[in-house]
């Protein structure tokens, strides 16, 4: 007589569970409300500064001081931050010194 013993085990189905994370992918930025509407990816302050620099025909560009004079009421820090942003993005570049900027659009 042969007694066959079936080896137990093995076959239990360990289902691999892949954890599903709720989709919270947020690229950030974007539309933040009507009071701070972005135009072409620029804040109103940034586009104002850019437009002024674009309008300048001088070879050395426009100085921060002149921007400040034209943009009455705009904080000097806001202007400087806008200039820095626009420079980083390549919209403007400094000319004779770090106080004068020209637009890459104008020629």
């Amino acid at each position: 007589n042969k007694v066959q013993t079936m080896p137990a085990g093995g076959g239990a189905s360990h289902g691999l569970t892949t954890p599903v994370r709720p989709g919270t992918a947020d690229m950030g930025g974007g539309y933040t409300g009507a009071s701070d509407m972005y135009v072409n990816g620029l804040t109103p302050h940034q586009s104002q500064v850019l437009n002024l620099i674009k309008s300048c025909r001088a070879a050395e560009g426009m100085s921060i001081q002149e921007l400040k004079n034209r943009l009455k009421g705009m904080n000097i820090m806001t202007i400087k931050q806008a200039v820095e942003f626009l420079s980083n993005e390549g919209h403007i570049y400094s000319t004779v010194d770090e106080d004068h900027y020209r637009s890459t659009d104008a020629d």
């Binding site: 980083n88 993005e89 390549g90 919209h91 570049y93 400094s94 000319t95 020209r102 890459t104």
Partner: peptide, 20 residues
């Protein structure tokens, strides 16, 4: 002025890389 030309070139490159 060399400095201005270089700055402009660098700015144009930054602008181009942003627009890709």
């Amino acid at each position: 002025m060399e400095r201005i030309r270089k700055n402009k070139e660098a700015a144009l490159q930054r602008l181009a890389s942003r627009n890709i």
